[in-house]
């Protein structure tokens, strides 16, 4: 199984590229202090809004901070938000989806109606609304993206469960008298892992986009902590004098999200059960 997976995965060049970028970003995030030429918070009012140069590769911002260093540290925020937020969404979404798909009946009805309601809200506004009531911070951002990101996943997992539930091995496991919890965790969950994995990967990209948008609006990660989104806020204010402030953080977001999308779509192809069977 893993061998087939790996063989098929390696053949998918775009997915490999995505995985490589994500891996590199993770390394950058971990060893950020070693890579960043300056401290991300070190201000230098004399050299503010300097264009890219030999000293400041990507220029400086309105407070004279080194843009490259801030972007490097911003990697940490993006990865953290992406993983934690989607982690929350995955746990809730899979759990509700499993329960809904496995037990059916009234529980299913209640959960699915709840999902319908959640999907009716413009998610982004729901997030804005909640953040407005809480204090904007990276933790709240992660929690809120996670808590609003699960409904579509629940639907997906439920659908998969419904089809897997009727297959022989699940029926057999139930006939053997295994507890419901065991059947769900041991027999159902592994069989719905593939779509969860794909959605999670694509979801991380989405979460990073949402975080950057929130931070851009001043409702996400608060300065002075560097996040790609809040660097862009400054970029917007100085758009006519300092193009680098707008360009580079955006590129960072683009490349990162693109990497997750490439990996996610690649995984979707690779994990396609019709293909895996071959």
């Amino acid at each position: 199984m893993w061998k087939i997976f790996w063989k098929r995965f390696r053949r998918n060049k775009l997915a490999m590229l995505g995985a490589f970028i994500i891996f590199s970003l993770a390394v950058v995030a971990i060893i950020a202090p070693l890579i960043a030429p300056f401290s991300p918070d070190q201000q230098d009012i004399l050299h503010r809004l300097e264009p890219p140069s030999g000293k400041h590769f990507l220029g400086t911002d309105d407070l004279g901070r080194d843009l490259l260093s801030r972007i490097v540290y911003g990697t940490r925020v993006s990865l953290l938000v992406g993983f934690v937020a989607i982690g929350i969404a995955i746990v809730i979404g899979s759990l509700l989806g499993l329960l809904s798909g496995y037990f059916g009946g009234w529980l299913d009805t209640v959960i699915m109606r709840f999902v319908d309601i959640m999907l009716c809200f413009p998610t982004f506004f729901l997030i804005l609304m909640v953040i407005a009531f809480l204090e904007p911070s990276i933790w709240n951002v992660m929690a809120v993206i996670g808590l609003t990101g699960w409904p579509s996943l629940t639907r997906l997992v439920r659908g998969e469960c419904l089809s897997v539930r009727e297959r022989e091995f699940v029926q057999a496991a139930r006939a053997l008298g295994l507890s419901n919890r065991r059947v769900m965790l041991v027999h159902l969950l592994p069989n719905v892992m593939a779509p969860i994995l794909v959605t999670a990967t694509l979801g991380i990209g989405g979460a990073i986009l949402t975080e950057s948008a929130l931070s851009f609006l001043g409702l996400g990660v608060q300065p002075p902590t560097a996040s790609w989104g809040n660097i862009l806020t400054a970029g917007k204010d100085y758009i006519s004098v300092a193009w680098w402030l707008s360009l580079f953080p955006g590129l960072a977001i683009l490349i990162t999200v693109l990497a997750y999308n490439l990996l996610g779509e690649g995984l979707r192809d690779v994990l396609d059960p019709r293909m895996m069977a071959e």
Partner: peptide
């Protein structure tokens, strides 16, 4: 389509305004 999924639209808005 891949780019469309990955571009932060608000950033694109900034670039286009620029």
């Amino acid at each position: 389509v891949f780019l469309g999924f990955s571009v932060p639209a608000f950033w694109l808005a900034l670039l286009l305004m620029l």
